[in-house]
Design a protein around this nucleic acid. Structure first.
Lengths: 232, 232
DNA sequence: GTGCCAATGTACGATCTAGTTAGTTACTTA
DNA sequence: TAAGTAACTAACTAGATCGTACATTGGCAC
């Protein structure tokens, strides 16, 4: 099996192609990326078992042979797809800057980032669902995943601490639970859109309802964090 | 080499003792139910595409031919499985009796019923995820589903109305949104258990954490419904 | 320009899988 | 008790699907 990230031997460094200015006919990086793009769509669309290697190959400008040349197997291709979509949300989360914000606004900001990301990346949500159906067994074969997303959680942790100090957050809660709460709301809207719509006749992911559900999430999280326990 | 004159076709391999009058050798209802039971497990376990008709047949006391005899196709078997698991939760929801309860307790009760049902029926949750991966296209072929679950929603609606009358619920919310909120929380814990555990090292569906997450859900819903909007 | 090899293409095969064909028998009922 | 039929079984098929053996070529190093 070939790892394209170290297979650039003999390739021109990224500079202009050999004088004639044409796009080179052979380009490992480009071919590999194109396979990944198509595979992401196909796996997200049809699931791991439903996706067809032949179909992915056909939709690429290259052939099935190249999939096995670069990725080795259907499963390893799928794992590469998973790694890439998770990298995307991790990257998005790292753009967050809530240092100057009030704790209430900061937690709203985080919730809204998750909301917006999931709404605009249904493929990611589908791949996560697919991976859960497979009990995360493919994910387990990659060293990339364990503990990788800790950054958002520690950000939430900081905000909760600030909120408590300032007397804004009355309730004692765990940061990972807050993340779970936000995720569950944002994931459900996209992941369970189809059965929900069939049964209740409401399309949760309808863009027309977006602002309403976005506001509801913020209200929900803030209400939970600020309200005092009402035990008599 | 097979001698056609002594063909074994159609003969039961382990010719069971007949005529003992206790358990009939042939029983359409029992066979059908057994196929459905095994199929539910297999589809929930491996997904629609991942499940194998041959495997389902092998795990049954009967043969693959019977699956086609009773259900016609893999897809129709799957639809029958779906119909049955949805019937179960509908039935559970109908046992709810919250007439005598305070609105706050009543809404907690509904949330906890959903929580408990989903925790104890992971196959149902998996089948729902699988169906969403398939964009609810199989569900759409059954007349059973559209609008069927309206009963919980109208129950929530009644409770919300009572709560507003009594001044307990400050916020103006839609009953279906409350149902969505409860479902998203309860579904996520079970459906996304594996990826969440892989990435964050916490098993949301761990029985040891059950009471904590059950209480959190109630607190969450109540906080959201009772808290006033905090716009200045 | 020539040698080399990464990158690519073609064609095929072993296996799996949904569904079918053909045949058998337990049970009911008249 | 005879006959009809619902319930049942074994063996097969057509087509799909992952993966591979083998052939080929573009472009860089020298």
């Amino acid at each position: 099996m070939v790892d394209a990230s170290v297979s650039t031997r003999g390739r021109r460094p990224d500079a202009a192609p050999s004088g004639d200015g044409l796009v080179p006919q052979r380009d490992a990086g480009r071919t590999r990326t194109e396979i990944l793009d198509i595979a992401t769509r196909e796996f997200a669309d049809r699931g791991y078992n439903g996706a067809r290697v032949d179909e992915i190959a056909t939709k690429t400008r290259t052939t099935k042979r190249m999939i096995y040349y670069y990725f080795g197997s259907k499963e390893q291709l799928y794992i590469a797809v998973l790694e890439r979509v998770y990298l995307q949300i991790r990257t998005a989360e790292q753009t967050l800057d809530v240092d100057g914000l009030d704790p209430v606004d900061a937690i709203r900001r985080i919730a809204e980032l998750t909301f917006d990301h999931h709404q605009s990346h249904p493929d990611f949500i589908r791949l996560v669902s697919i991976e859960n159906i497979n009990r995360a067994e493919h994910m387990a074969k990659s060293p990339t995943f364990p503990g990788q997303n800790a950054s958002v959680v520690s950000l939430i942790e900081q905000i909760l601490a600030r909120g408590r100090e300032q007397g804004r957050f009355a309730r004692q809660v765990d940061a990972l639970d807050v993340h779970m709460l936000i995720s569950s709301y944002c994931v459900f809207r996209v992941a369970n859109r189809h059965t929900f719509n069939t049964i209740f006749g409401r399309d949760l992911a309808d863009p027309a309802l977006r602002d309403r559900y976005r506001a509801m999430l913020g209200d929900l999280v803030v209400a939970y964090l600020t309200e005092l326990d009402d035990d008599p």
